[in-house]
């Protein structure tokens, strides 16, 4: 499995070195440099992230895999500006997230990042339409325009006939579609999806994965998705494996295809 880590780490470092040069043709949206996150639990220190370097290209679909406790969610939160790393830097379009104050972080979360959660997190007292409108209102879009855009994007995710339903009246898969519409509403630079299919049955999960891939291609939005789901690998451009707070390896999908059967057998 370690076969892949060498060439990839070379790519990573060369990208770091050349990112300011004029002839650099590849665009990067997310870059982390030596990110460390230490949690204190009583007397013991837990290194949830232990020096993570990843570089994610614009428009890429990245899956982050790894057992629970491997630091997936922590990395995800660091990229999303939801928590500050103990040391290291997270760049989104060359902005160092760690340098931002509370209001700038709110702006980043609003305009540059769309979140999709395992448990959907649709605001319960609001309709699908209001949920999708919300981030646009936070972003200063006039209410009428926000509503038009929300209707358009809800129709795109297949909920055109359910825009006035509340979460109670929607199935899990439908709620996750609302969440996807909400995440894409502000035309963000990246989408962060934290195990979006973990609470769904296999069939619905596949539909959600497909929808996310379609939206990724249609809109050119970078998608970073943490997952346990092997089906996710098929549509990912690259896969990041994490273990014990470190990046174990990064592989292109083409390379993984060869391996995927042996991996399935192992588990």
């Amino acid at each position: 499995m370690t076969d892949f880590s060498e060439p990839d780490s070379t790519i990573r470092h060369s990208s770091l070195d050349t990112r300011h040069s004029a002839d650099d043709t590849v665009e990067y949206t997310v870059m982390t440099r030596d990110v460390v996150k230490v949690y204190r639990m009583g007397d013991t220190e837990v290194r949830a992230l232990d020096g993570v370097d990843v570089t994610i290209r614009t428009g890429e679909y990245i899956s982050i895999m790894g057992p629970s406790g491997s630091g997936k969610t922590t990395l995800f939160n660091a990229i999303g500006g939801l928590m500050k790393p103990t040391s290291g830097n997270v760049f989104i379009d060359e902005i160092d997230v760690a340098q931002l104050d509370a209001n700038e972080l709110a702006w980043l979360r609003c305009r540059k990042i769309g979140y999709i959660f395992q448990s959907y997190n649709i605001v319960k007292v609001m309709t699908a339409l209001e949920n999708v409108t919300l981030p646009m209102l936070f972003g200063g879009v006039p209410p009428d325009e926000a509503q038009d855009r929300a209707v358009e994007i809800l129709t795109r995710v297949g909920l055109g006939d359910r825009i006035l339903h509340t979460p109670k009246e929607l199935s899990g898969g439908q709620q996750q579609r609302v969440a996807i519409a909400r995440a894409f509403a502000n035309r963000p630079a990246i989408i962060l999806a934290d195990e979006p299919t973990a609470n769904l049955d296999i069939h619905t999960g596949e539909e959600i994965i497909e929808l996310m891939k379609e939206m990724n291609q249609e809109r050119g939005v970078t998608v970073i998705c943490s997952t346990h789901d092997h089906k996710m690998l098929d549509i990912s451009d690259r896969i990041v494996w994490m273990r014990d707070g470190k990046v174990q390896k990064i592989a292109n999908r083409a390379d993984v295809d060869i391996e995927i059967n042996t991996m399935k057998e192992k588990e």
Binding site: T58, W107, R111, L137
Partner: peptide, 23 residues
């Protein structure tokens, strides 16, 4: 999709505001 290699003008960190009416 804009080149991340050029910290462009639209990456200036903006402010968020919400009208009283909406709140």
């Amino acid at each position: 999709m804009k080149p991340a290699t050029q910290p462009s003008a639209d990456w200036e960190i903006g402010s968020l505001s919400l009208s009283l009416e909406v709140v």
